[in-house]
């Protein structure tokens, strides 16, 4: 009897760790593009944190706003100081899941189109977001890409009328992450 429980415990422990496969990165790339009549503004963040649980199909992202690099130093300063208020709201996060969990065969190499939905938090404001993306599995590593737009006003970010021609009301966010297995 004791043996039985011991075995059960071992199976559960081992089974638990085997099934709960998690993949992560701390060097994900997130690009922000604003295309307005007068000006195109682009910024890149190369240090996005992302984690994916293949068992539950849950995905979470976190990025530091200050890590966005702009071409012009003044734009970067304005982005942080005037729009994102990054000292008050240092991070943007996304917590969601792949809608159709059966869409991806995690054990098989291939490229799988998916839809991801969840909660996006930017500038301290949380909104529901659904975005199309692609999961690519190749030799045990997982890559994820997605491009979507967000309306700046939805997240409580004001654009003064003076610069309305310079900053787009909807900005494009492109996410590109290469995930490696998390050993825990």
């Amino acid at each position: 009897m004791q043996k039985f429980f011991f075995l059960l415990a071992v199976i559960l422990l081992v089974g638990g760790t085997v099934n709960a496969q998690k993949y992560f990165t701390r060097a994900g790339k997130v690009t922000f593009t604003s295309e307005a009549p007068v000006e195109k503004i682009e910024a890149v963040n190369q240090s996005a944190t992302a984690i994916l649980d293949t068992e539950s199909s849950r995905m979470e992202f976190a990025i530091l706003i200050k890590a966005f690099q702009f071409e012009k130093a003044l734009m970067q300063e304005h982005f942080n100081e005037n729009y994102m208020e990054s000292s008050t709201y240092p991070k943007a996060t996304f917590k969601g899941q792949i809608d159709d969990a059966t869409a991806v065969n995690w054990g098989k190499d291939g490229s799988y189109p998916v839809t991801v939905s969840g909660d996006m938090t930017i500038h301290g404001v949380t909104q529901k977001l659904t975005a199309p993306g692609t999961i690519t599995i190749k030799e045990g590593s997982i890559a994820a890409q997605s491009t979507f737009t967000v309306a700046v006003a939805d997240y409580g970010i004001e654009i003064p009328s003076v610069v309305a021609e310079n900053i787009a009301k909807e900005v494009t966010i492109a996410v590109d992450v290469q995930l490696a297995q998390l050993n825990k």
Binding site: F5, L12, A20, K22, R26, T49, E60, K95
Partner: peptide, 30 residues
């Protein structure tokens, strides 16, 4: 015998808590 049951419960519970937890928390703050 009793110990094993406790261990078993702990394992089950611990395991489920582990997978329910918020994922980013697993990575810790860098």
């Amino acid at each position: 015998m009793k110990n094993w049951i406790i261990l078993l419960i702990f394992c089950c519970f611990g395991w489920s808590a582990y997978s329910q937890d918020d994922l980013l928390g697993l990575l810790g703050e860098e």
